[in-house]
Structure formats: C-alpha cells, structure tokens
C-alpha cells in the first residue's frame, strides 16, 4: 500500500497541484489581458478606457466575467445540441493543455517531454476544430461562412509556422523545449533567424485569428463569424480560449526566439532576476505587439490573406529552412 502511495498517488497529487497553479495563473493573465487590451487600445486612441469599476478599472474583468456567468445560454432551435456545447469547451481545453510543456524557468515545467515543440504544434493545429465545429453546429450561414474561412486560414498559416519551427529545431538540435531554450544561452535565435522571427509572429497573428487576419469574425460582413449564435458562458469560453491562445503564441515566440527564461546577458544585475520573470516579461512584450497590431492595421482581404500565406510565407520559410540547413552543414556548425 505504501509503495502504491509513493509510486502513483503522490505524483498524481503533485501533478494535479501543478496543473491547478498553472491554470489559475493563466486564467488570471487572460482576465487581465482583456483589460490590458482595452487600456492599450484606449491609450492609442486618446481615450481613458475602462476606469470606473475599482481603482483604474482593475476590477473590470471580474465584473465582465460575472455578467457573462449570469446570462442565459441560448441554443438555437436548429443547432446540433451536443456539438454546439462541445465546441467552446474544445477550444478552451486546447488552449489550456498546451501549457503542459511550456517551461517557465529552469526545470519549471509540468511535462518535460522529448517532442515538446511538436506537441505544441499539434495542439495549435487542433484549434481549428473548435471553430469549425462551432460554425457547423450553429446551423447558421454566417457562423458557417466564418468557420470555413477560419479552416482555410489556419491550415494555410500552419504550414509556414511548421517550417519556422523546423529552422529553430535545426539550430537547437533538439525538440525538447528546455533544450531549445538552453541552446540560446549565448545567442538568442531572433538574431540569426530574424526573418523567421517576423514570419512566425505574423503567422501567429493569423493562427489566433487576430487583426489584421480576423476576417473569420469580420463583423461588417459576417456579423461576428463562427460564434455569432453563442451567448453567456459558451461565448465566454471562446473568448477566453482566444486570449489564452494569444498568450500561448507570445510564449512560443519567447521560447523559440527570445531565449525563454534566460536573461539577455549573463551578467550580475540581470541574472539576479529569476527566470520566470524574464519569461513573463518576454511574453508581455509579444502580447503588446498583438494589441498594437490590432490598434494600427486594417483587415486583410481574403484573397490577399491566402496569397500572403501560400505565395509569400511558404516559399520564404521553405527557402530559409534550406539556407539554415546548408549553413549549419557546410559551416561545420553541427
């Protein structure tokens, strides 16, 4: 019995506590990201932003959450009930389980698996299902059109994200995320791979359906896209999932290109700061670009979006893979 406790029960309890901590922190970040977005947009448009609920509007996300919780969940009469309710859950679950392999600091990771980066890529490529199933199950033409656009868009940009990840893997020589970060101890990858860094970030915008690639929910033509029929908590889950995905893409950018939890230089005042704080700062840096892009850029036209994905990003990233591999082999770096 004692061996059962030490081999199964204790690790299970530890893992559950770790998961609870990560999910709790993440949900807090998601809530305050919505506030940060409104504040940043307001500042860029010379407005105040939410400032009524609590000091500087700090309780606004809580008020929004309570409002959504108390509203009625409406299920359209022609909808496929099970899939209609399952779709937002799927989106939300997928946005959370990706965090299992993200290292917040040296050894601070729930599952340190060998194929960590592939796992992240797999999870982010599944995100399209929540959207497509939601669009189909709603039995509404606007939701369906939004879902179809989204499926095409996410599949297109995944290809270039895949090639960007391959270039990073070539440089790091491992698919373990902790090892990828460790490989950047002397030189962050965004310096040698600068074009890929930009490309990854733009593809990340498309993958999370954010401006300027948010024609999935283009309100002027599709009302609100795939979640037009959703209300209350089912809507809130989509919303939370979208913001959690934004944080995930920023965290991936930090891990792949900005050295994860490592300080910029391994010198005295900088390496006193603990790793998770560096990681948090780098993720926030990425998130600010998400918000900045939303405040600045107009929406892409659909054919231009597809052109950018297939005719510009794909050849560029494929060419860079060949270039990096060639430099590594013939430069004698591997």
């Amino acid at each position: 019995m004692a061996s059962f406790f030490s081999t199964y029960a204790l690790p299970t309890i530890i893992i559950v506590v770790q998961i609870a901590v990560v999910v709790g922190i993440l949900l807090g970040c998601v809530a305050y990201l919505t506030l940060a977005e409104r504040k940043v947009l307001a500042a860029m448009q010379l407005r105040m932003g939410p400032n009524v609920v609590g000091p500087f509007g700090l309780f606004q996300p809580i008020a929004d959450g309570l409002k959504l919780l108390t509203k009625e969940t409406v299920i359209p009469s022609g909808a496929n009930r099970i899939l209609f309710v399952a779709a937002p859950m799927l989106t939300f679950i997928l946005s959370l389980i990706a965090w299992a392999v993200i290292p917040f600091g040296q050894g601070m990771v729930i599952a340190d698996i060998n194929v960590g980066i592939l796992y992240l890529f797999a999870i982010s490529s599944l995100g399209v299902y929540g959207i497509v199933v939601a669009g189909w199950a709603s039995n509404s033409k606007y939701a369906f059109l939004g879902a179809l656009r989204s499926a095409a868009q996410m599949v297109s940009y995944e290809v270039s994200i895949g090639f960007v990840i391959v270039t990073v893997l070539l440089c790091a020589g491992s698919m373990n995320i902790s090892k990828i970060v460790e490989a950047q101890r002397h030189l962050w990858f965004f310096i040698p791979l600068f074009p890929m860094f930009i490309l990854f970030f733009i593809s990340g915008l498309a993958e999370t359906n954010r401006t300027p690639f948010d024609l999935v929910e283009g309100e002027s033509e599709l009302v609100a896209g795939y979640f037009v029929e959703y209300s209350s908590m089912t809507f809130a889950l989509f919303y939370l999932g979208e913001y959690a995905n934004m944080i995930l893409i920023s965290a991936m950018t930090a891990i792949l290109f900005l050295g994860g939890w490592l300080p910029p230089f391994d010198i005295a005042p900088l390496n006193w700061v603990p790793g998770p704080i560096w990681f948090f700062a780098k993720t926030c840096f990425g998130l600010f670009f998400f918000l900045w892009a939303r405040a600045t850029l107009p929406r892409y036209r659909y054919d231009q979006l597809m052109r950018l994905g297939w005719k510009v990003f794909l050849p560029l990233s494929l060419g860079y893979v060949a270039l990096v591999a060639g430099v590594l082999v013939y430069g004698g770096l591997v």
Partner: peptide, 22 residues
C-alpha cells in the same frame, strides 16, 4: 514512439481530417 504519435496528430488530425471535415 512519441515522435510518431505527434506526427500522427499533426498530419492526420491537424491537416487531413480538417480537409475531410471541410
């Protein structure tokens, strides 16, 4: 075979089945 598992999810679930569903 963790590599095969992830490849299966990426290729079949992430791409092929999306097009089927589409």
């Amino acid at each position: 075979a963790e590599f095969l598992a992830m490849t299966l999810v990426i290729v079949y679930v992430g791409a092929v089945a999306v097009l089927f569903l589409f």
